[in-house]
Computed example of a mutant assay.
Amino acid sequence: MSEKVSFGYEDVAPEEKEGRVGAVFSNVARKYDLMNDAMSAGMHRLWKDKFVRRVKPRAGEQILDMAGGTGDIAFRMEKAGASITVSDINQDMLDVGIERAMERSIDTLVWSRQNAEELSFPARHFDAYTIAFGIRNVTHIDKALAEAHRVLKYGGRFFCLEFSTTEWPGFKEVYDVYSHKLVPQIGQALAGDADSYRYLIESIRRFPPMPRFEAMIREAGFKHTKVEPIMGGLVAIHSGYKV
């Protein structure tokens, strides 16, 4: 039986998922903020601010921001004076980020097209690895986590911001209706693309629950792992250290 991986609610071959996810993000690259606003009711901006506060970027550090193509996290971190490499598998997303950096007169970032499962960087190169709302779209999450561990220096820190499943009674049901029914309609109305938004919501439902994902981070070799749920687990900040 050939391997299957999830693409939303479908199970597909790994090579098919990579291509289809690539198409989704090429479609939404120019509507990135709209996409995140639709999925989070605008709260993603506050969550990203909190995430960067947890990362605590410092001057002189080397930080890899994976799946960070449009620069949202990197723009927040570069103010600290860290040297940041922004990587993404999707060139359309990177192109948007580069344009946004030029608009902000930010010329200190390095932009690099990379597959999270097979990074070209040497081992023990970065002080921190960040990935926000990207890891659930990776074909083999375990390989991406192993690569994150490999490229981090000893003492390096891993931080991941990702949607999960809220455990707040009542709110969970309301958000399920909002996300499954309204978000694709918003995508269609504002971006002419219901299917991409539908996939992004379905991908959240197929992502491992918080305890299982934390276990995966530990299995990749990280120590002192931690999960910080936000809004009852609607999103969570996962972290760990290479020691």
Rank of each mutant, 00 (worst) to 15 (best):
H180R: 09
K181C: 10
K181Q: 13
K181E: 10
K181A: 12
L182I: 11
L182V: 10
L182F: 10
L182S: 03
L182N: 03
L182A: 03
V183N: 04
V183Q: 02
V183W: 01
V183K: 00
V183H: 00
V183S: 02
V183D: 05
P184M: 02
P184N: 00
P184W: 01
P184Y: 01
P184K: 00
Q185K: 14
Q185R: 12
Q185G: 01
Q185A: 13
Q185T: 01
Q185L: 13
I186A: 09
I186Y: 14
G187M: 06
G187V: 07
G187Q: 05
G187A: 09
Q188K: 13
Q188N: 13
Q188F: 09
A189W: 09
A189S: 13
A189L: 13
A189E: 08
L190C: 14
L190W: 15
L190G: 03
L190Y: 14
L190E: 02
A191S: 15
A191N: 10
A191F: 07
A191E: 07
A191W: 06
A191I: 02
G192Y: 10
G192V: 11
G192H: 07
D193R: 14
D193L: 08
D193K: 12
D193T: 14
A194C: 10
A194E: 08
D195Q: 12
D195S: 14
D195G: 09
S196H: 00
S196E: 05
S196I: 02
S196D: 00
Y197L: 09
R198D: 12
R198G: 01
R198K: 14
R198A: 14
R198L: 07
R198E: 12
Y199E: 06
Y199V: 06
Y199C: 09
Y199T: 01
L200H: 00
L200F: 00
L200C: 08
L200A: 03
L200D: 02
L200Y: 03
I201N: 04
I201F: 00
E202W: 06
E202L: 00
E202A: 11
E202V: 02
E202K: 05
S203N: 05
S203R: 00
S203D: 00
S203Y: 05
S203P: 01
S203K: 00
S203G: 07
I204E: 09
I204S: 10
I204H: 12
I204C: 10
I204W: 09
I204F: 09
I204A: 08
R205K: 14
R205A: 15
R205D: 15
R205S: 10
R205W: 13
R206C: 08
R206S: 11
R206E: 06
F207K: 01
F207W: 10
F207N: 03
P208W: 01
P208F: 00
P209V: 06
P209C: 02
P209K: 09
P209T: 11
M210I: 15
M210V: 14
M210F: 07
P211N: 06
P211C: 07
P211V: 06
P211L: 03
P211F: 07
P211Q: 08
R212C: 09
R212H: 13
F213W: 08
F213V: 09
F213R: 06
F213Y: 08
E214P: 04
E214C: 12
E214L: 11
A215Q: 15
A215C: 06
A215G: 13
A215T: 10
M216N: 04
M216W: 07
M216F: 06
M216D: 06
M216P: 05
